[in-house]
């Protein structure tokens, strides 16, 4: 980190960069969320299932995010772990209308938390209880109960209901992550 970088950041011209990994089951809306967070002109009109992963960038008020948007399909989930190491925050997307597979999501979350690279670190986890507009969707509180989020003691976490299509609830989550990362640096 050169002198000019420091200077630029101090003057607020250049934002600090953070790496975030976005995971969750297939069809939970990860790519749609990331797409919505991007600047208006960079957004894509149609979203297709991700194979493997894609790298996306977006910015909040004070941070520049680099997101590894992972594929949620069953056979690619074991590839997530390759990207845990340098993640500074995790976004876990849950389809709050899919009660049936909530246990699968819970299972994946447990595996994630027990991974060597995650276990030792105190990194913030943001949960999006997505698809809140659906009729049969559960509330954020209900989702956190079903996922057993209260059990997470050693890491800061936050859950917020969201609608990725309209963008409702997304800024709240990003703000929380930003605060967490900034407070950690201090």
């Amino acid at each position: 980190m050169g002198f000019f970088d420091t200077l630029a950041r101090w003057l607020g011209m250049k934002k600090k960069e953070v790496n975030v990994i976005c995971v969750g089951l297939d069809n939970s809306g990860k790519t749609t969320i990331i797409n919505k967070l991007k600047p208006q002109n960079a957004q894509q009109s149609d979203i297709v299932p991700t194979i493997g992963f894609t790298v996306e960038k977006f910015a909040s008020a004070s941070l520049s995010f680099t997101v590894f948007d992972m594929s949620g399909q069953g056979r690619y989930r074991n590839l997530w772990e390759h990207y845990y190491k340098d993640a500074q925050a995790i976004i876990f997307v849950i389809d709050s209308s899919d009660k049936l597979r909530m246990v699968v999501a819970k299972d994946e979350l447990e595996q994630l938390l027990n991974n060597q690279d995650i276990l030792s670190k105190r990194i913030p986890i943001l949960f999006y209880a997505n698809k809140m507009d659906m009729k049969e969707s559960l509330s954020a509180v209900k989702v956190s109960q079903m996922m057993g989020l209260e059990a997470i003691k050693d890491k800061p976490w936050h859950i917020c209901a969201s609608n990725a299509i309209t963008g409702e609830g997304l800024p709240e989550g990003v703000e929380w992550v930003t605060d967490q990362i900034r407070s950690m640096k201090k």
Partner: peptide, 12 residues
């Protein structure tokens, strides 16, 4: 192994 991991990045 698992080289298909870059599929979406390449299609993008």
């Amino acid at each position: 192994e698992d080289v298909i991991i870059v599929t979406s990045s390449l299609t993008k």
